[in-house]
């Protein structure tokens, strides 16, 4: 479906939900993973996000893009999960096949599966810098949109962006992965 039509929906059926997930599912998952650093939480959060989108599509007014709307929901859901991290929505049956909940399992993931070194650096950033960097640098939300999503001032967004970039630049130069002419 074209971007402009999502805002006119009063509800969704299975096909529309699939279409939404085919377009944005991986991005939602990626953001949830970047913020929580956990496969299992990212799975749960992605499910919650699309469950919310399915129930609340009629409230989407098109003031932002549908992607921005979904990413805002993802960010807030992720933060809620992190805040209540000690309350785990785990059923008695563990279904994730290759990850446990232990720190060693998480460490193993961090070391083996990143597509690029840059992501290792990003994941080491403190959360408040990581989230603004990703929302701005990867998902290209505006400063205003980020401020609204994070419920902070635009000045704070800019300040965190600046610090995030500085850290990344320092690490990047320290790694020495680029040749200079």
């Amino acid at each position: 479906m074209e971007e402009q039509y999502w805002k006119y929906l009063n509800g969704m059926d299975a096909d529309l939900l699939r279409e939404l997930m085919e377009q944005f599912g991986q991005e939602v998952w990626n953001l949830a993973y970047i913020l929580t650093k956990r496969h299992d939480l990212a799975d749960d959060i992605t499910q919650d996000v699309f469950f919310n989108a399915y129930r609340n599509i009629r409230f989407f007014r098109g003031e932002s893009s549908i992607q921005t709307w979904l990413l805002s929901i993802t960010r807030n859901t992720s933060i809620n999960y992190l805040r209540t991290a000690f309350i785990r929505k785990v059923t008695l049956m563990e279904w994730v096949s290759d990850l446990g909940n232990s720190p060693s399992a998480e460490k193993e993931v961090l070391e083996q599966t990143f597509s690029d070194d840059i992501w290792r650096m990003v994941m080491e950033l403190p959360l408040k810098y990581r989230e603004v960097l990703i929302l701005f640098g990867k998902y290209e939300l505006s400063i205003k949109e980020i401020a609204k999503t994070l419920n902070i001032s635009e000045g704070t967004v800019k300040s965190r962006m600046s610090r995030a970039r500085k850290k990344m630049n320092n690490w990047n130069e320290g790694v020495g992965t680029y040749e200079r002419s």
Binding site: Q26, N30, F114, M123, G137
Partner: peptide
């Protein structure tokens, strides 16, 4: 950052 995903 913009062009790649975190995981392979």
């Amino acid at each position: 950052l913009k062009e790649t995903d975190p995981l392979r």
